[in-house]
């Protein structure tokens, strides 16, 4: 696919976009918490992917490589803009109506979901991204480490620290009730 993209085959690029656009957009949205900004970030990430394709080493995992490009761009743009922590939009406003709540979803109030969503924005960017990759995107510690270019132990401790911080938020919420 990458080779064909480099040869200028339009179909190959479309295939790559189809494969990764939704994933990258959601990753960007979960990271920055703003729908429009996530759209811009997604476009910028795909520009970077396209221009970096000649540097892609075909012996490596394409998904991990693409997610690394995304991670670098997300962290860099966070550092440049230094967004306020409280700017995250309500997650649910962008969900299409009619999504069936699963059995677990019924047990957990929408309020708690929203609390976790907003809580993500209070985590330092590296911890936030590691949590998103591990917990939302279902990556293993090893995959998170590869994508973020850090040792596995560091990935583990980041993810655990992030969870402890989110749990603290839940505790505060409970004690306020």
């Amino acid at each position: 696919m990458v080779k064909e993209c480099l040869e200028g085959k339009e179909q190959a690029w479309h295939l790559l976009v189809n494969n990764f656009s939704r994933r990258i957009f959601n990753l960007a949205y979960q990271f920055c918490g703003c729908y429009e900004e996530a759209e811009d970030l997604t476009q910028e990430i795909f520009m970077k992917i396209y221009t970096s394709l000649p540097k892609y080493d075909s012996s490596k995992n394409l998904t991990a490589w693409i997610l690394t490009v995304a991670k670098n761009h997300l962290i860099d743009s966070y550092r440049k803009t230094k967004k306020e922590k409280s700017q995250r939009e309500d997650f649910w406003q962008h969900l299409q109506a009619g999504i069936e709540p699963g059995p677990e979803a019924e047990m957990i109030t929408a309020q708690t979901r929203e609390l976790i969503w907003k809580g993500l924005g209070q985590l330092p960017p590296e911890i936030r991204l590691a949590i998103i990759l591990k917990e939302i995107h279902g990556k293993s510690y090893e995959e998170v480490a590869e994508i973020m270019n850090i040792p596995v132990g560091t990935a583990k401790s980041r993810i655990n620290r992030g969870k402890i911080q989110l749990a603290r938020l839940l505790n505060q919420e409970v004690s306020q009730r």
Partner: peptide, 22 residues
């Protein structure tokens, strides 16, 4: 609860105009 909430977070659909730009 946190793990459950995060792993069950719905994925948004991508806007067709964004897809076209990509």
């Amino acid at each position: 609860k946190i793990s459950l909430l995060l792993s069950s977070m719905p994925q948004l659909e991508i806007n067709p105009s964004l897809q076209a730009r990509l």
